[in-house]
Amino acid sequence: MSMVLTIARTEARRIFVSPLAWAVLAVMQLILGVFFVLYLDAYQREAGMSDQYMGVADFIGGGLYNTANVVFLLVLPLMTMRLFAEERKSGSLTLLLSSPASLIQIVLGKFLGLMSFMLAALALLALMSFTLCAGTHLDVGRIAAGLLGLFLMMSAFGAAGLFVSTLTREPVIAAVAAFGLLLLLWILQGVAQSESLQHADLIGYLSLIGHFENLRRGVFNSADVVYYLLFVALFLWLSVLRLDIERN
């Protein structure tokens, strides 16, 4: 475990000493900030008209977190592309492979390191949401469920991106391929809508976005959480397999 933490700590450090992470966080925050203001504005206007009561947390959860999800989908491949592809290209992967660390420890360490970035992005978003506490009673539970959903979603993106990064030695290809894979898993939901398709239920179930819906609405269903955990575990395991194949 200490080996995993050693790798994770250095990985996190490498992420945050590079300008890429800061640029990504800044752009993300700007875009989400703009949406935040737009949603608030819309909420204010609609609140008067609508006769049905709708909490601000719902509004934030529904609008802002959905937007955040799309932004993360675009951004995480940029962060995962470096994990293995760049290291392989520069030859620094050898440091890990020739060390006593096992492949599982290496993959877990890298993933945990990446998590530091996800948590930073999430913290910024949470701060933005909780500024509303100043003006209103916020349904904290709902916001928390939404944030948990986002975190699980990001973990899934990260694990899939990490796996794609083990496949190639070109960071850009890793980014493009990871983006493609995530988008594909995302739109499975849309595919499942098609009536003519067999096993539409199954395909819909496999889609990443479907399980986010519940959490976003504040419904904590352990099946959804387990779905994301399994998704992450699957791709991390595939990464270990892939690195093992490379050695042989």
Partner: peptide, 24 residues
């Protein structure tokens, strides 16, 4: 290895500290 496995964005101290940790 032929190509030293370095992390260019770290300082020498940071890098060597990491290598020490990796090697137990």
């Amino acid at each position: 290895p032929e190509q030293p496995p370095l992390y260019p964005e770290l300082t020498v101290d940071e890098y060597l500290g990491y290598a020490a940790g990796l090697h137990g």
